[in-house]
Simulated assay, not measured.
Amino acid sequence: MSNWIHVCATDEIDEEDLIRWDHEGRTFAIYNTDDGFFATDGYCTHEQQHLEEGLVIGKVIECPLHQGRFEIATGRALNPPACIDLKTFPVKVEAGDIYIAL
Rank of each mutant, 00 (worst) to 15 (best):
residue 62 E to F: 07
residue 87 K to F: 06
residue 74 T to M: 02
residue 67 Q to V: 14
residue 47 E to L: 11
residue 11 D to K: 13
residue 3 N to A: 14
residue 68 G to K: 01
residue 46 H to S: 07
residue 11 D to A: 13
residue 28 F to A: 07
residue 57 I to D: 12
residue 86 L to E: 02
residue 94 E to Q: 12
residue 67 Q to H: 14
residue 96 G to S: 03
residue 99 Y to R: 13
residue 78 L to P: 11
residue 2 S to M: 12
residue 89 F to N: 00
residue 82 A to R: 11
residue 49 Q to W: 02
residue 67 Q to G: 04
residue 89 F to R: 02
residue 90 P to V: 03
residue 33 T to N: 04
residue 38 F to K: 00
residue 40 T to G: 11
residue 12 E to S: 13
residue 6 H to G: 04
residue 44 C to T: 05
residue 44 C to N: 10
residue 55 L to W: 05
residue 83 C to D: 10
residue 20 R to Y: 06
residue 50 H to E: 14
residue 36 G to Y: 03
residue 49 Q to N: 07
residue 7 V to A: 04
residue 31 Y to A: 05
residue 19 I to V: 09
residue 95 A to Y: 00
residue 17 D to R: 03
residue 2 S to P: 15
residue 34 D to L: 04
residue 73 A to W: 07
residue 43 Y to S: 04
residue 9 A to T: 13
residue 4 W to L: 01
residue 9 A to V: 07
residue 92 K to N: 12
residue 15 E to R: 14
residue 24 E to H: 08
residue 48 Q to N: 13
residue 21 W to K: 07
residue 81 P to K: 15
residue 98 I to L: 09
residue 5 I to R: 01
residue 68 G to V: 00
residue 64 P to K: 08
residue 64 P to S: 12
residue 87 K to L: 08
residue 89 F to H: 05
residue 54 G to T: 00
residue 80 P to K: 15
residue 6 H to S: 11
residue 67 Q to A: 13
residue 3 N to Y: 15
residue 95 A to R: 05
residue 3 N to K: 10
residue 98 I to Y: 07
residue 46 H to W: 08
residue 4 W to Y: 08
residue 19 I to C: 09
residue 53 E to D: 12
residue 10 T to H: 10
residue 70 F to C: 01
residue 60 V to F: 12
residue 33 T to L: 02
residue 95 A to D: 13
residue 97 D to S: 14
residue 1 M to P: 15
residue 81 P to Q: 15
residue 67 Q to K: 14
residue 56 V to K: 05
residue 50 H to Q: 05
residue 92 K to W: 11
residue 10 T to L: 03
residue 21 W to D: 05
residue 56 V to P: 08
residue 30 I to K: 06
residue 29 A to S: 14
residue 12 E to G: 13
residue 21 W to S: 06
residue 94 E to V: 12
residue 60 V to A: 01
residue 16 E to T: 13
residue 49 Q to K: 06
residue 58 G to C: 08
residue 98 I to Q: 10
residue 18 L to Q: 08
residue 32 N to Q: 02
residue 92 K to H: 10
residue 80 P to T: 11
residue 61 I to M: 06
residue 38 F to P: 01
residue 17 D to A: 10
residue 17 D to Y: 10
residue 83 C to Q: 13
residue 26 R to G: 02
